[in-house]
Each structure stands twice: as structure tokens, then as C-alpha cells.
């Protein structure tokens, strides 16, 4: 892929033209980042274990959404099997800990690699499919994997679920959400950084080229087949790592948690945040994760409110929450 080609491909909000000089970060963005960093550091000192549990869950969903962002948002491949890869990550990591007492960084790597490898296989099989056919095929894979989780008793514990040994690193044993929090934050930051690197790299540009047009990408010399398989593999790797992150603070997994509903929840987060944008994937996971938790306090109306919020988002912010905020800010600045 030539440099010139790369600059004409429609870009996501994270992309910079390859040859362009690095832009200075606006003061508002620096302030926002500083605030987020301070909040992340202060959080465990000022909140209860319950809030940290929610924070850990949100961070897991951020990584899950980043994976979905790579395959759907960046590459335009409508894959609906994310819960399956997430499950593979949880079980791989849990079994590595249970059976071999592996330290959690190694289990995490294993979870990502196993899920990524399965993702590559699925990506290869799904190469010829696109749009609704790809969605249906990956949906079928997701359902099949849930069946496997439910029925492979000897390995997954079947409908009895699997108890996961506490994550370890040497003598350190993670038993509480407070102990897991720094690990989960660290891995999330690492995965965000990795996503930015991928997005700005040649690989990221090839993903976006494929998203815009297979034929045009091929004409430009982009190996479309390889790009699609890579996107599937990377996306599954993220989901696997997210699963392993979950296993650092949760000691039990049941196949019921790994159904289509989990994929749809992640998809909703990515779409509402803003498809094709890293900020959207991260923000969508946080906003919708929090909305879902707050709605638990209003059991009688939560489905209606949840539905209404989704409709309002789709009507008034179809490009995503953060694009909407940016537009509104721009409008205010322009007067």
C-alpha cells in the first residue's frame, strides 16, 4: 500500500494521514485525559468494592468493545460471535489457572491467543461471506459455542458452571475487586494503546480500505483476504483478553452469560458510542454499562427506559454519542 493511497481512504477519528506531521493535542483533550487518569488512580481510595466491581466490569466491556470496533467499525465485517470468543477467553484462562496454576499474565496471553486462533479459523471460513450472511454465519458460530460451553461438562462444567481459581502472580493472589482493579486498568490501558497503534498503522489503514470497498482495496494492492482474517483474529484476541480480565475478579462462569445477549450488548455499546471510532467504543461501553446498572434500580420500567434511550440515540445521534457531542460543541463554538 502506498503512502498516497493511505491518505485518501476515509478515516476514523483516530487516524492521521501517514505523512502528516504529528498534531499538537488540544488543551481540552489534555485536561480530559489528566482528569481520567486522576479519577482512575483515586477511585479505589474513595469508593466501595461494589463500585470497583462495576468499574472492573466496565473495563472488561471496553476491551470487548475495542475488539468489536476492530472487526465491525474498522473493517466493516458484521461479525456477531464476540460472546463466544469472550467465553473461550474466560474458560481458557480459568482452566489454565485451575489445572496448571498459571500466573494470570500467562493465562491472559493464552486466553487471547486461543481466542485469536479460533477467530482466525472463523475468519478464514467466513471469508466468502458478507453483510447479513456473515452476520448469520457468525451468529450460528456463537450459538454453537454456547452449546459447547453448556454441554462439554468435563471441561467447562456444563450447566453447573465453572469455578475459577483466584488469579495469581507469584505469592500475590487476587481475591477482591480492589486487588483486581489495578490489573484490569493496566490491561485496559494497554489494549487501548494497542488499538490506537493498530488503527494508525498500515494494518489499520488496510482494514478501513476493506471496509469502504473490497474491490477498491484489492485494486490498490491491499491483501483483502489477509486483512479480513487479521481483523477477525485480532478482534477475537481482544475478546479473549477481555474474558481473561473477567476471570481475574470473578470466580465463576456459567454458559448463560455467554449468549447472544452479550454480543448484542457489546454491539449496542459500540454503535451508540460511535461505529468506527475508538473513543466511541470506549465511551459507549462506559455510558451504556452505567445506564444498564442504574436501570437496575427501576425494575418495573427498565426495559421501557432502555428501549427509549436506544431509540433516542438512533434518532438524534445516529453517528454515535461522541460524534453528536462534537457536532453540538462545534455548533456552539461557531455560534
Amino acid at each position: 500500500m502506498s503512502d498516497k493511497t493511505a491518505t485518501v481512504i476515509p478515516a476514523s477519528d483516530t487516524e492521521r494521514p501517514r505523512l502528516a506531521a504529528p498534531e499538537k493535542m488540544p488543551v481540552t483533550q489534555i485536561a480530559l485525559l489528566a482528569f481520567v487518569a486522576a479519577a482512575l488512580v483515586v477511585l479505589p481510595f474513595v469508593v466501595t468494592g461494589y463500585v470497583l466491581y462495576i468499574a472492573n466490569l466496565l473495563l472488561v466491556f471496553i476491551v470487548l468493545c475495542l475488539g468489536l470496533h476492530l472487526v465491525i467499525g474498522e473493517t466493516g465485517q458484521f461479525a456477531l460471535a464476540h460472546a463466544a470468543f469472550y467465553g473461550i477467553g474466560i474458560y481458557s484462562s480459568g482452566l489454565a489457572g485451575n489445572a496448571f496454576g498459571w500466573p494470570f499474565p500467562l493465562s491472559m496471553l493464552l486466553a487471547g491467543v486461543v481466542a485469536g486462533a479460533v477467530g482466525v479459523v472463523i475468519g478464514t471460513v467466513a471469508l466468502r461471506m458478507r453483510d447479513i450472511y456473515l452476520a448469520l454465519a457468525t451468529f450460528a458460530f456463537g450459538e454453537a459455542m454456547q452449546w459447547v460451553f453448556l454441554n462439554w461438562d468435563q471441561v467447562t462444567g456444563g450447566p453447573n458452571g465453572l469455578r475459577i481459581s483466584p488469579a495469581r502472580l507469584g505469592d500475590l493472589e487476587i481475591l477482591t475487586d480492589r486487588q483486581a482493579y489495578p490489573v484490569v486498568v493496566f490491561v485496559t490501558l494497554l489494549m487501548i494503546a494497542l488499538t490506537i497503534v493498530i488503527s494508525r498503522s498500515r494494518v489499520g489503514r488496510s482494514f478501513r480500505a476493506v471496509r469502504e470497498s473490497d474491490v477498491a482495496a484489492m485494486a490498490m494492492g491491499i491483501p483483502v483476504r489477509r486483512a479480513k482474517i487479521t481483523a477477525f483474529g485480532l478482534s477475537a484476541f481482544y475478546a479473549g483478553v477481555a474474558g481473561s480480565m473477567f476471570a481475574t475478579f470473578s470466580t465463576y462462569i456459567h454458559p448463560d452469560s455467554l449468549g447472544f445477549q452479550t454480543t448484542i450488548l457489546a454491539l449496542t455499546m459500540v454503535v451508540v458510542g460511535g461505529l468506527g471510532s475508538i473513543t466511541g467504543a470506549v465511551g459507549g461501553a462506559i455510558v451504556f454499562g452505567l445506564i444498564s446498572e442504574f436501570l437496575r434500580q427501576t425494575p418495573s420500567y427498565q426495559e421501557i427506559i432502555y428501549g427509549l434511550i436506544l431509540i433516542v440515540f438512533m434518532m438524534y445521534a445516529p453517528r454515535g454519542l461522541f460524534a453528536f457531542i462534537r457536532d453540538q460543541m462545534g455548533r456552539i463554538t461557531r455560534g
Binding site: 488512580v41 477482591t176 489495578p182 490501558l189
Partner: peptide, 20 residues
Amino acid sequence: TCVWLGAALLAAGLIHSAGA
């Protein structure tokens, strides 16, 4: 900066996890 931030987060969380 990223590396320092990550290390600080890790250390902060582990110190606090001693709990009361």
C-alpha cells in the same frame, strides 16, 4: 508517561487493597 502512569495505578491499587 504511559508506563509511569500504569505503574502508579498498579502500585496505588495494591497498597490500598490492604483494607481495613
